[in-house]
């Protein structure tokens, strides 16, 4: 197992290396570089100045050389300077990650809390009206464009009913001393709509998955045996069947990790939350490529971590799985 994990991590580095080369090349494809852009409105700038700035940003060299020095910096946690935000990218990521992470974590928990029971219910009542209703709702959730749903929510809850704030993180004029309960509630009140949006548009996939797996398990011989033995139906479902459905579900948690972070770009933008994703949107409108690159690398690391995590979890839940 240990050996397997080490090997996987080594492979992950190779993949990350590939990702970073791709992104770096893409970034350097731009005809005008960061310095030209950043100094476009500065009339007093001289060519010498620019050259100095280029050295500072590490883009005075060719693509390969530049990549090597970028990589050197990145390995030491230095992802370069953000053009638009005028701060080191790594500092920005650390600063704005908590919001993104909090929304992602709450959404993840809610998604599973809704998807698993409903998925089991749908599987138990296969081909009944309940099943059809759940299936149709699931598909609507999968097919719902998140931005459209966000606008609908905003229209209903903040424009019509006026019970939820339409955007932002905290009530504008409220002041809090330290982190109090009231402040927490204010956060939650503001995050209610983004989280709903997030949960309802991505709950479908997990629900569908739960249902399919549960159906498969329910058709197994040992379930029939349990029923024939006279085990109460509830026990059959929860103890015999559900535990085996759990295996693929657990592996899905790892897989959904990166999606939660990359999906943030949309939700955060829609509700003006100060998180990584919203920053990425601002960055893209202002061609702030160092930030975008740092953000993407961060997401790539998350994706690889997620897959690794799901493979490890797989072995933890299912004792039959042995990696060598």
């Amino acid at each position: 197992m240990k050996q397997y994990i080490i090997r996987r991590i080594l492979i992950s580095f190779v993949v990350l290396f590939g990702v970073s080369i791709m992104l770096y090349t893409l970034v350097r494809l731009m005809p005008s570089d960061f310095v030209d852009l950043a100094t476009a409105n500065d009339m007093h700038i001289t060519e010498e100045h620019k050259q100095k700035l280029r050295e500072l940003y590490g883009i005075d060299k060719g693509i390969i050389e530049g990549y090597v020095s970028w990589l050197g910096g990145a390995l030491q946690g230095d992802l370069g300077m953000s053009l638009y935000f005028k701060k080191p990218v790594s500092e920005l990521i650390v600063k704005y990650m908590p919001v993104t992470f909090a929304v992602a974590a709450i959404s993840l928990v809610l998604q599973y809390a809704i998807a698993v029971p409903l998925g089991i219910l749908a599987a138990r009542k296969q081909y009944t009206k309940t099943d059809y209703a759940i299936t149709v709702l699931t598909f609507i959730g999968i097919s719902l464009p998140i931005f459209f749903f966000a606008v609908v929510l905003r229209t209903v809850f903040s424009e019509w009913l006026r019970i939820l704030p339409s955007s932002g993180m905290l009530t504008a004029r409220a002041t809090y001393n330290g982190f109090t309960f009231a402040k927490l509630m204010d956060y939650l009140w503001h995050l209610a709509m983004p989280i709903t949006c997030f949960v309802l548009t991505s709950v479908g996939g997990i629900l569908r998955y739960t249902r399919t797996n549960m159906l498969e398990v329910l058709n197994m011989d040992y379930i029939r045996t349990a029923r024939a033995k006279g085990v109460p139906e509830n026990k059959v479902i929860h103890k015999h069947a559900f535990r085996n459905t759990l295996i693929p579900l657990v592996t899905m948690i790892g897989g959904s990790l990166p999606g939660l972070f990359s999906g943030a770009a949309i939700t955060e933008g829609l509700f003006a939350l100060e998180g990584l994703g919203n920053m990425a949107l601002t960055a893209s409108y202002n061609s702030d490529v160092p930030y975008l690159m740092g953000f993407n690398m961060f997401l790539a690391v998350m994706t690889l971590l997620g897959t690794l995590l799901s493979d490890i979890l797989y072995a933890v839940v299912d004792p039959r799985v042995r990696y060598s």
Binding site: M30, S262, V289
Partner: peptide
């Protein structure tokens, strides 16, 4: 398969943001 993993590790919408920024500049 490593190539597949590389493409898998790049999230789509954020990547599109970069590409769009590049396209605007070009």
């Amino acid at each position: 398969m490593r190539l597949v993993e590389i493409f898998y590790a790049i999230p789509f919408i954020p990547l599109m943001l970069i590409i769009s920024a590049v396209m605007i500049q070009m």
